[in-house]
Design a protein around this nucleic acid. Structure first.
Length: 845
RNA sequence: GCGAGAGUGGUGAAAUUGGCAGACACGCUAGACUUAGGAUCUAGUGCCUUACGGCGUAAGGGUUCAAGUCCCUUCUCUCGCACCA
């Protein structure tokens, strides 16, 4: 490496040259290439993963670098601590936007995607992240989706994939089916269009078979309680009992699921969901018309409408009756859409006394309400709480917990029911009627039925099409390519048709962390050696928007692979951190409407007015949006202030996990700090022994930065570096003994400047693997500390005292202090508390 | 409604987990300096008060010698779920 000189003004450090130089150096010398060195023991290996981006046409936004910077700092720190670190990056490159663009313009999604990936890669590289780019992957390449298809076949062969015609969430705009998780407020997660119910043949994955394990194994993960709670919520496990009710004048029976079998004596009617298969069978002639009409109405309503109308309970009597198994009473069977076909058995025993929904329904339709648990006022509302059972035969006098047990035993002994567990989690609609996704490697044979494409024929390539528009029948564009669709059966050789559905975008991201381990392997998705070397992921950082979808799906696939003996851990991601969103300031009128940033003037500090009307506005925090004109473009920030400032500012803003508003003024503060570091570096370097207070400060700084970096508390680590630099700046000279370690501390945060300063100190090699400075605990302790003297908890004086001072001498010093004596004069000292190195509190009366 | 989390200066935020509230940074004020820059340097900056001092971490109450931190009540905001039987 050759030393070089920059010709630049005294201030303004030449970040552009520095950043270019070192990015080139890292790339050309493959500084961050990672190899599986068996000599490195397991405990000295770390796999640090970022959620890979979808390469959208709008490029990187300021949110991306936040998590990426955090992991980069952490990885650089770990390398300097002697760890072998795997830190890869890639692209989640199948997805709807490129396909919609193709429909609009005719441009092949592969072309758009490749272009966007190039832009993303360039932007990511411009931030100086230490990824091992030799491991880059993109999910849309055949080399990658070969193994996505292979994993799908394993799921299929394990019986975890099935075809179904049951009604699914259909997005009329995306022209595709959606999983429950992809529907928000009855609207498509992607495009916001109202989702409809539609029957279309779909491939479904049996994620529910793993519900219990997905729930239980959360316990051993180092994830935040919030994310764990969301996943638990989504899985929604509940314990109860299935109870069988016989139907009068019928061979059929109705099974219901209840979490409150103890209230069975209070069940005065039953309700079936409109979609329940027995509705049309049991309805009496007299009620058939009314019921049919109700079913029609229910079918036309979307889920959103059905839940929107939650306040008013609707329903209709079928004319049929069931027998309450516990007391033999005849109870009417109703149909109502407040009962969901997708939960439990799609039928309930209604206990209006102790379930608010049933209570409201009973009030609406004048059905009897019977109290079976004491404690509430059933005239007012249902009583959900615990209490002694009444009107309940053998349960009378028992509390809820005992009554549940007792009833369950009774039901099981009479063969009328059994203990049961239910989940809110539904199976995963896995097929999409779209082009730009992995083809599902199955064929439909006239003779053999569904036959998997032989593994040795994978990847099943995505064919070229003339039109990207989904076919009118709701099938994918692939259905229109006869020569691709028509094939021969791998088993019998007879005529067969290919599956034309493709996989959802989640498929590729379900296992990408495994492909990084061995990205060029043509024989298997990753070799066992590499999996054993690195897995599981030690730290996974990404946005909280994937709290349910991606993380649940990836965990599911991982568990399947674990059961197949293909991976070595039950869970893929040990520790998960969700970075907060980077928001922006926005300005709000009194009526709460927002004003675009370019229409706002700051009339005086902290006072904002709408330029056109002079109306005073309130500064609020909002998401960045094009309409508010408060979107920050990272490219512009990097070209004006440099990548090091960008990185460091995003870490300085506040804790990684919380959302925080962008302020370019705040960024300038960090830029000034780096500029100051640069100017400091140009002072005369001396090998003289630095003053002791500065040595002590250095050691405190090393400690603070080391611990802060290790715990991802970057903001306070940075302030400590600022404190250190502010002190150094007061000195005439630059002490090598202080400067050399400081440059190392700074380098994970501002790696370009770090390398530059390291080189200028005369070091020949990159500091990427230079040993991280250590601190002397003795030197981090203050010899003298300021001790506060309080009287009745109020600070009245302060004094410097030896850190060694014991409680007795502290008390003595406080009592002798002149100002304290004034405060306690004429009063009775009741008690004195002394906390070494902190305070003395004298309690007087 | 249920679940999770959060409320600290004009702003972003600190606070060794019960021990000086506001570190660090932005902004602002005053001054210095200059090769007029996105400068830089020095000092000041929670609120009230001439001062002594008083008040202050969403609001109210409590525990404690001592509370931003622990407990109770209330309010507000953010996120997730939403008739889940």
């Amino acid at each position: 490496m050759r030393p070089h000189e920059y010709h630049s003004p005294m201030s303004k450090y030449p970040f552009q040259q520095i950043e270019q130089t070192w990015q080139k150096y890292w790339e050309e010398n493959r500084i961050f290439k990672t190899v599986e060195d068996p000599a490195v023991p397991k405990e000295k290996r770390r796999y640090v993963l970022d959620m890979f981006p979808y390469p959208s046409g709008s490029g990187l936004h300021v949110g991306h670098p936040e998590g990426y910077t955090a992991t980069d700092i952490y990885c650089r720190f770990l390398r300097m601590k002697g760890y072998n670190v795997l830190h890869p990056m890639g692209f989640d490159s199948f997805g709807l936007p490129a396909e919609n663009y193709a429909i609009a313009t005719g441009t092949h999604p592969g072309v758009t995607t490749a272009k966007n990936i190039d832009i993303f890669r360039k932007q990511i590289k411009s931030l100086g992240f230490s990824y091992d780019w030799d491991r880059e992957i993109s999910t849309h390449t055949p080399e990658y989706y070969h193994w996505t298809q292979w994993i799908f076949l394993q799921l299929y062969k394990k019986g975890l994939a099935y075809e179904s015609d049951t009604p699914i969430n259909w997005c009329p705009d995306c022209l595709t089916g959606l999983a429950n998780e992809e529907v928000n407020d009855g609207k498509c997660d992607r495009c916001g269009t109202q989702v409809k119910k539609k029957n279309i043949r779909q491939w479904i994955l049996k994620i529910t078979e793993y519900a219990d394990r997905l729930l239980e194994d959360l316990d051993e993960l180092e994830w935040t309680d919030a994310i764990k709670a969301m996943q638990r919520n989504w899985i929604g496990r509940s314990e109860g009992a299935d109870v069988v009710f016989s139907i009068e004048h019928s061979e059929e029976s109705i099974t219901v699921y209840t979490t409150r079998p103890d209230t069975l004596f209070g069940s005065t009617y039953m309700v079936l969901a409109p979609e329940h298969h027995l509705v049309r069978e049991i309805v009496t002639e007299e009620h058939r018309d009314a019921v049919e009409q109700y079913l029609q109405q229910a079918q036309q309503k979307s889920d959103l409408e059905r839940t929107d109308l939650a306040k008013e309970k609707t329903g209709v009597f079928t004319g049929a009756h069931a027998v309450n198994p516990v007391n033999g009473k005849s109870i009417p069977i109703w149909v109502a859409d407040y009962v969901l076909i997708s939960y439990g058995s799609g039928a309930i025993m209604a206990v209006p006394g102790h379930d608010q929904r049933d209570w409201e329904f009973a009030k609406t339709f004048n059905l009897p309400i019977v109290e079976v648990v004491e404690g509430g006022n059933l005239e007012e509302e249902a009583y959900i709480g615990d209490g002694l059972h009444v009107n309940s035969g053998f349960l009378d006098g028992l509390s809820t917990e005992d009554a549940v047990e007792s009833m369950n035993d009774w039901l099981e002994s009479k063969n009328l029911g059994k203990r049961a567990v239910n989940y809110k989690l539904r199976d995963w609609v896995f097929s999409r009627q779209r082009y730009w996704g992995e083809p599902i490697p199955l064929v439909h044979c006239d003779a053999c039925g569904i036959v998997p494409v032989p593994e040795e024929e994978l990847p099943l390539m995505l064919p070229e099409v003339e039109s990207y528009t989904p076919s009118g029948t709701g099938e994918s564009p692939l259905a229109k390519i006869d020569h691709w669709v028509n094939t021969s059966c791998p088993e019998c050789g007879g005529h067969a048709k290919r599956e034309t559905n493709t996989m959802p975008q989640w498929a590729g991201s379900c296992w990408y962390y495994l492909r990084y381990l061995d990205p060029d392997n043509a024989m298997e998705f990753a070799s066992q050696e590499h999996i054993d070397y690195w897995m599981p992921v030690d730290l996974y950082v990404g946005g909280a928007e994937h709290a349910v979808l991606h993380l649940l799906y990836a965990r599911f696939w991982h568990k399947v692979l674990y059961d197949l003996g293909k991976v070595n851990s039950k869970e893929p991601f040990l520790k998960l951190i969700n970075q907060g969103m980077i928001t922006s300031f926005a300005y709000q009128r009194k009526d709460k409407s927002l004003v675009p940033t370019d229409e706002v003037t700051e009339s005086e500090p902290g006072v904002f007015i709408e330029t056109a009307t002079d109306e005073e506005l309130e500064q609020v925090v909002a998401k960045m949006s094009k309409s508010l004109k408060n979107v920050i473009n990272p490219d512009e920030i990097i070209s004006s202030y440099g990548a090091d400032s960008m990185r460091m500012y995003e870490m300085f803003m506040g804790p990684l996990q919380v959302s925080k508003p962008w302020s370019t003024k705040g960024l300038v503060g960090v830029f000034r700090f780096l500029d100051r570091v640069w100017r400091l570096s140009q002072r005369e370097l001396t090998d003289e022994q630095p003053p002791e207070p500065l040595v002590r400060l250095l050691h405190r700084t090393i400690k603070k930065v080391s611990l802060g970096t290790e715990h991802l508390e970057f903001n306070t680590a940075i302030s400590q570096m600022m404190i250190f630099v502010n002190e150094l700046f007061k000195e005439e000279k630059l002490y090598r003994e202080l400067w050399d370690p400081f440059v190392l501390l700074l380098s994970p945060y501002a790696p370009h400047l770090g390398e530059e300063l390291h080189q200028r100190l005369g070091h020949e090699h990159s500091l990427a693997y230079a040993p991280w400075p250590s601190w002397d605990e003795e030197l981090t302790r203050e010899e003298e500390t300021e001790v506060v003297f309080q009287v009745n908890g109020k600070v009245r004086a302060k004094a410097m005292m030896s850190a060694e001072a014991d409680q007795e001498s502290m008390k003595q010093a406080a009592l002798e202090h002149q100002r304290i004596r004034q405060w306690i004069e004429g009063k009775v000292v009741v008690k004195i508390i002394a906390i070494p190195q902190r305070l003395v509190n004298i309690v007087v009366k």
